[in-house]
Amino acid sequence: MPGMWWAVGTIMVVGLVSTYLVWTAGRVERLHARAQLAARALDAHLLRRAAAAAVLAERRYGVELYAAARIALDAHPDEREAAENDLTRQLRLVQLDPTDPDCEAVIAASRRLALARQVHTDLVRDARAVRGRTLVRLLRMGRGREWPRYFDIDDPTLTVPADVPTG
């Protein structure tokens, strides 16, 4: 009888460890998938903001803003962060009127971009933290997937002058 309790105990421990490992591997996969989805959403918001800025520049603010918007729209992935930072700097140089629909579109797109960037940063941080754990590294649970990358840009939120009423 005593040998049977050892066998039952061993089987239970092996079962619990296996369950934990399967759960951990699933978590690594889920976090990677969520980080990829957040990267796609971030990319979509970057494109929307650049397109809205291009429309605004065509109608009102001229060549520098339009050039920055076009460069951001056409940027290669390796150059995207620099192009987006340049677009943010150009947008901060112009006086945006929130009562103008074109300006309001850029302001709203910038707010949504800031939120998408924060979500992406949080998910990348979580995925990297889980993937950096010793057990995950030892068992190579993240193999076949690249490490999630941060998208390092300036805060894209645009400020509106205090004397202009916001709707």
Rank of each mutant, 00 (worst) to 15 (best):
P2M: 10
G3I: 15
G3R: 14
W6R: 02
W6T: 12
W6L: 14
W6E: 04
I11T: 14
M12W: 08
M12I: 12
V13D: 01
T19I: 00
W23R: 06
A25M: 04
G26Q: 07
V28H: 03
V28Y: 01
E29W: 07
H32K: 00
H32M: 01
A33K: 03
A39Y: 10
A41Q: 12
D43K: 05
G62C: 07
V63G: 00
E64S: 10
E64M: 03
Y66F: 10
A69M: 11
R70A: 10
R70N: 08
R70D: 10
L73V: 03
D74L: 10
P77H: 06
E79H: 15
E79F: 12
E81K: 01
A82G: 13
A83S: 15
E84M: 14
D86T: 15
D86P: 00
T88E: 03
R89L: 13
L93V: 06
L93E: 14
L93Y: 03
D97L: 01
T99M: 11
D100V: 00
E104P: 01
V106K: 07
I107F: 02
A108S: 13
A108L: 14
A109C: 07
S110I: 02
A114M: 03
A116E: 07
H120L: 01
H120M: 02
T121L: 08
D122C: 04
D122S: 14
L123N: 05
L123H: 07
R125E: 13
A127V: 03
A127S: 15
R128C: 07
R128W: 07
R133S: 07
L138Q: 15
L139F: 14
R140Y: 07
R143F: 10
R145W: 14
W147H: 10
R149M: 08
Y150N: 05
F151V: 06
D152W: 08
I153K: 02
I153R: 08
T157R: 13
L158K: 04
T159Y: 05
T159Q: 14
A162W: 05
V164N: 00
G167M: 08
